[in-house]
């Protein structure tokens, strides 16, 4: 390149170029609103969450029990064999202390997303959720946690029916 080329294209703009009208632009809001079908497996997952249960699915051929549920085993490509009731306890596989929102607003108290390996899965697999009722400094990989459920009347059939996981 760079030996042969002395000038590269590409014009750098600053945010102030937009704010002060030095550059022409237009904006568009795509209003991208969706209703995603939950489907067979996740549909039942949500229904069970509403009742305060965490469920997974089992593949007898691959000898594994996994969560979130799926209708077919992506390893052997057969339908999953059965539903399995799982305990609402698990182990922190990994976590983060997050000080920013998705649109880069700052948070004074961190959110603590974690992958929680759910007891009773095999091989041990997890779901993503938040940790709560815990001092951020004390969170560690390997920590034992349990789901904190919303009261039954507030549950809507959503992953948010579990408020968060807290240390056991």
């Amino acid at each position: 390149m760079t030996v042969k080329i002395d000038k590269f294209p590409g014009v750098y703009l600053h945010e102030s170029d937009f704010e002060q009208g030095r550059v022409l632009y237009n904006t568009w809001d795509p209003q991208a609103q969706y209703a995603w079908d939950a489907g067979i497996a996740i549909g039942r997952y949500l229904s069970e969450l509403k009742q305060g249960h965490l469920v997974g699915v089992r593949c007898n051929q691959c000898r594994r029990t996994v969560v979130p549920p799926r209708a077919f085993c992506e390893w052997c490509f057969r339908p999953m064999d059965d539903w399995v009731n799982l305990p609402d306890t698990g182990t922190v596989n990994t976590f983060s202390l997050c000080y920013v929102t998705w649109d880069m607003q700052y948070l004074t108290e961190p959110q603590i997303p974690a992958v929680i390996d759910i007891d009773g899965t095999r091989p041990s697999v997890g779901i993503m959720h938040l940790l709560g009722d815990v001092d951020p400094k004390k969170v560690h990989i390997g920590m034992r946690v349990q789901a904190v459920w919303k009261p039954e009347e507030e549950r809507t059939g959503s992953i948010l029916d579990i408020r968060h996981f807290k240390p056991v």
Binding site: Q33, A35, D37, A38, L46
Partner: peptide, 8 residues
């Protein structure tokens, strides 16, 4: 049948 609503 359940649909989950959201946006981008």
């Amino acid at each position: 049948a359940i649909a989950w609503h959201g946006d981008i």
